[in-house]
């Protein structure tokens, strides 16, 4: 029982980071129907921003965590904006395949560019200690242990998710985003500026991934190489599909399912932990092709 709850807690921690990345995939997909492979690398840039900015922020502001995460979010948001402007906008009315291949290209470019010695470098880097990890044993006979990093991960992602829900549901631009994702041509006929909406999605999604990158750094403490984004991005993407890509609550649900199942599978066999996500995904897609919360859209003839 104690073991079970401990894995559940670990899974929730993992799921929180996945959720922040998955939201970006799902927002972009919902609006431009593009699997943005480069999103994974934005997450990586976010993590590296933490590495480079934390010492500066500590000097300037005294405390490092909050200024670092905000700065990283701003930078990744800007990066997302530029990426859309340079790489995807010229292809907006071309075939979806060209955009998809471009996304692959952008991803590879970011990864290899960042691995250059004068950018981030290809080598291992130790993430600065933004937070000193402290174990907090929970009361009760089960012997459960959580630490302040876990609380931070879950707390930050919940706060950001609540902000996102507010943004999407209550603000004008958020409502416009939902309209565009529902029907782009009609939305533009209603006077919605599609360019602004798309840019917003490409700012907000990457900013969340940037925050995810910082949490990743704080939690795992090491940045192996600029290709670290691939696997995290891949799994967050799978989580978004699992929940129903294009659906924001779906991405969060998918991310927690992924995180929890991965935590349990890892406790059985560390290699299994990695693969379980894909098995679950295939299983769910066979039963519900549009994911758990996604709506199936029939093709128009």
């Amino acid at each position: 029982m104690g073991q079970f709850l401990q894995q559940l807690i670990n899974g929730i921690q993992l799921g929180s980071i996945y959720a922040l990345i998955a939201l970006g995939y799902t927002m972009v997909y919902g609006i431009v129907r593009l699997i943005n492979f480069a999103h994974a690398d934005i997450f990586m840039v976010g993590a590296y921003m933490g590495y480079f900015l934390a010492p500066v922020m500590a000097k300037v502001f005294g405390g490092a965590f909050i200024p670092t995460i905000i700065a990283a979010m701003l930078i990744t948001g800007l990066l997302g904006f530029i990426m859309e402007k340079l790489a995807y906008r010229p292809l907006r009315y071309k075939s979806r395949l060209s955009a998809l291949i471009t996304a692959l290209g952008v991803s590879l470019f970011l990864e290899n560019f960042c691995a250059l010695p004068f950018v981030f470098g290809p080598t291992f880097r130790k993430f600065p200690d933004l937070i000193v990890a402290k174990n907090i044993p929970l009361p009760g006979s089960l012997g459960l242990i959580i630490d302040n990093v876990l609380l931070l991960d879950v707390g930050v992602s919940v706060v950001l998710m609540v902000l996102l829900f507010w943004f999407v549901n209550k603000t004008l631009i958020g409502k416009q985003m939902r309209a565009v994702s529902f029907d782009k041509p009609t939305a533009s006929l209603m006077g919605i500026n599609i360019d602004v909406v798309i840019s917003t999605a490409f700012i907000v999604g990457p900013a969340l991934a940037g925050a995810g990158g910082i949490l990743f750094g704080v939690t795992y403490g090491s940045l192996n190489s600029p290709s670290l984004g691939i696997w995290w991005g891949l799994k967050a993407f799978i989580a978004a599909v699992l929940g129903g890509i294009g659906n924001i609550p779906g991405a969060v649900l998918g991310a927690y399912i992924m995180g929890i199942s991965e935590a349990f599978a890892t406790s059985v066999n560390s290699n299994l932990g990695y693969g379980i996500a894909f098995a679950i995904l295939i299983g769910i897609l066979l039963v519900r092709p549009s994911g758990l919360l996604g709506k199936f859209m029939p093709e128009k003839v």
Binding site: I35, L100, L234, I238, V241, I245, N269, N271, L272, Y274, G275, I276, A277, F278, A279, L281, I282, L285, P289
Partner: peptide, 21 residues
């Protein structure tokens, strides 16, 4: 749509996991 992409990607990684274990 993109389902083939997602399923093939997952199958690829699943096959690799099966080999690993």
């Amino acid at each position: 749509g993109d389902y083939l992409a997602i399923v093939t990607l997952s199958a690829n990684e699943l096959i690799r996991t099966v080999i690993r274990v």
